[in-house]
């Protein structure tokens, strides 16, 4: 059954706008990424950087299996999907991030090869962890700022 009203008064319009804001905010609230996702992803990525940098091939499978599992678990619990940003800046950040991770892995390998110490891969893994964690915090704050 269609509602054919096309004229409403300003009071009704105001009430509708308030309702819209309220429900938009509710949605945005649900779209805020969980802090645990950020923590889990940063640990797994840091571990991956460390393992590759240190050449511990026997344990590569741990982060490789953990990453999709974490994403799948998170996805199964989520009731809302945030809008994916396709802006140029996002792509630049993504490419930069991949470049940074590769650079850290390479740095870890070089330090281990030249000095025979695990300190290099450990430090590179920690840098990767904190970088991903910081990005997750930034992402959460970006979502929170959208809420009135």
């Amino acid at each position: 059954m269609k509602n054919n009203r096309t004229k409403i008064n300003s009071k009704e319009a105001k009430s509708a706008i308030e309702s819209i804001k309220k429900f938009e905010n509710y949605s945005l609230q649900h779209a805020i990424p969980s802090p645990w996702l950020g923590i889990a992803m940063s640990i797994v990525v840091g571990l991956l950087v460390f393992l590759i940098g240190s050449g511990l091939r026997d344990y590569y499978f741990v982060p490789i299996i953990a990453l999709p599992l974490i994403i799948a678990m998170y996805r199964s619990k989520m009731k809302v999907s945030p809008r994916a940003s396709t802006s140029k800046n996002t792509l630049i950040v993504l490419v930069g991030l991949i470049g940074l991770m590769l650079g850290l892995i390479f740095a870890g390998i070089v330090v281990r090869s030249f000095y025979g110490t695990m300190n290099g891969p450990i430090v590179c893994g920690l840098i990767a962890t904190f970088t991903i964690y910081w990005i997750s915090i930034f992402e959460r704050n970006e979502h929170k700022n959208k809420i009135d």
């Binding site: 949605s27 649900h30 779209a31």
Partner: peptide, 17 residues
Amino acid sequence: LQICSLLVPIEDAEFKL
């Protein structure tokens, strides 16, 4: 109006929500 308001700022939402 409420359904559209819920959906507009996001990609999608679960029916139950």
